[in-house]
Amino acid sequence: MGNYQICDFCGNLSEKRSRKMCASCEEDYRQIRDIVEAKPDTMVIDISRQTGIRVSKIIAFAQKGFFILNEGTIEGLD
Protein backbone atom coordinates (compact mmCIF):
# COMPACT_ATOMS: atom_id res chain seq x y z
CA MET A 1 0.00 0.00 0.00
CA GLY A 2 3.01 2.29 0.02
CA ASN A 3 2.53 5.55 1.84
CA TYR A 4 -1.19 5.08 2.43
CA GLN A 5 -3.29 3.44 5.11
CA ILE A 6 -6.93 2.74 5.91
CA CYS A 7 -8.22 4.86 8.79
CA ASP A 8 -9.25 2.66 11.75
CA PHE A 9 -12.21 4.94 12.50
CA CYS A 10 -13.83 5.99 9.23
CA GLY A 11 -12.32 3.51 6.75
CA ASN A 12 -11.07 6.18 4.38
CA LEU A 13 -7.75 5.85 2.58
CA SER A 14 -5.25 8.48 3.74
CA GLU A 15 -1.54 9.16 3.86
CA LYS A 16 0.31 7.20 6.54
CA ARG A 17 0.50 8.95 9.89
CA SER A 18 1.87 7.98 13.28
CA ARG A 19 -1.60 6.85 14.36
CA LYS A 20 -3.82 4.74 12.13
CA MET A 21 -6.31 7.54 11.57
CA CYS A 22 -6.87 10.12 8.87
CA ALA A 23 -6.47 13.85 9.46
CA SER A 24 -10.24 14.29 9.85
CA CYS A 25 -10.50 11.63 12.57
CA GLU A 26 -7.42 13.03 14.29
CA GLU A 27 -9.17 16.41 14.45
CA ASP A 28 -12.23 14.70 15.96
CA TYR A 29 -9.96 13.02 18.52
CA ARG A 30 -8.43 16.39 19.46
CA GLN A 31 -11.86 17.96 19.92
CA ILE A 32 -12.92 15.13 22.21
CA ARG A 33 -9.63 15.25 24.12
CA ASP A 34 -9.96 19.01 24.71
CA ILE A 35 -13.39 18.52 26.26
CA VAL A 36 -12.23 15.55 28.36
CA GLU A 37 -9.19 17.41 29.65
CA ALA A 38 -11.35 20.35 30.69
CA LYS A 39 -14.10 18.22 32.27
CA PRO A 40 -13.26 14.50 32.55
CA ASP A 41 -16.70 13.41 33.75
CA THR A 42 -18.54 14.70 30.65
CA MET A 43 -21.15 12.29 29.32
CA VAL A 44 -20.45 10.79 25.90
CA ILE A 45 -23.79 12.07 24.58
CA ASP A 46 -22.87 15.61 25.70
CA ILE A 47 -19.53 15.41 23.90
CA SER A 48 -21.39 14.28 20.80
CA ARG A 49 -23.83 17.17 21.04
CA GLN A 50 -21.05 19.72 21.56
CA THR A 51 -18.87 18.49 18.71
CA GLY A 52 -21.24 16.86 16.25
CA ILE A 53 -19.12 13.68 16.42
CA ARG A 54 -21.20 10.49 16.43
CA VAL A 55 -21.44 8.62 19.74
CA SER A 56 -20.30 5.45 17.96
CA LYS A 57 -17.08 7.17 16.88
CA ILE A 58 -16.40 8.43 20.40
CA ILE A 59 -16.91 4.90 21.70
CA ALA A 60 -14.62 3.57 18.95
CA PHE A 61 -11.85 5.86 20.24
CA ALA A 62 -12.37 4.40 23.72
CA GLN A 63 -12.38 0.82 22.39
CA LYS A 64 -9.04 1.49 20.67
CA GLY A 65 -7.60 2.73 23.98
CA PHE A 66 -7.57 6.48 23.40
CA PHE A 67 -9.99 7.16 26.26
CA ILE A 68 -11.34 5.28 29.27
CA LEU A 69 -15.13 5.04 29.58
CA ASN A 70 -17.08 4.56 32.77
CA GLU A 71 -20.86 4.20 32.54
CA GLY A 72 -21.36 6.75 29.77
CA THR A 73 -18.68 9.23 30.86
CA ILE A 74 -15.11 9.53 29.74
CA GLU A 75 -12.99 9.47 32.87
CA GLY A 76 -9.44 9.51 31.69
CA LEU A 77 -7.00 9.42 28.86
CA ASP A 78 -4.72 6.61 27.82
Rank of each mutant, 00 (worst) to 15 (best):
R30S: 08
E26I: 00
S18Q: 14
K57E: 02
M21D: 02
K64N: 13
G65R: 09
P40A: 07
F66R: 10
I68Q: 05
Q50T: 14
D28E: 11
E26G: 02
E15Q: 05
D28R: 07
R19L: 13
T51M: 13
K39P: 05
R33P: 01
T42E: 10
K20H: 05
T51Q: 11
A23F: 00
C22N: 03
R49V: 15
D28V: 00
N70M: 11
S14G: 11
G52T: 04
F66W: 15
I68K: 11
T73W: 01
Y29E: 12
P40C: 02
N3W: 03
E26Q: 06
I47G: 10
T42R: 06
I58M: 02
G2W: 01
S48R: 13
G72V: 09
C7Q: 11
N12G: 10
M1F: 11
Q50P: 04
R30H: 06
R17T: 13
E26D: 03
T42V: 07
S14M: 08
R54S: 09
S14Y: 01
A38W: 02
D46M: 12
I68Y: 09
C7V: 15
F67R: 08
R54Q: 06
K39N: 14
E15C: 04
I68W: 00
I53H: 13
G76H: 09
G65Q: 09
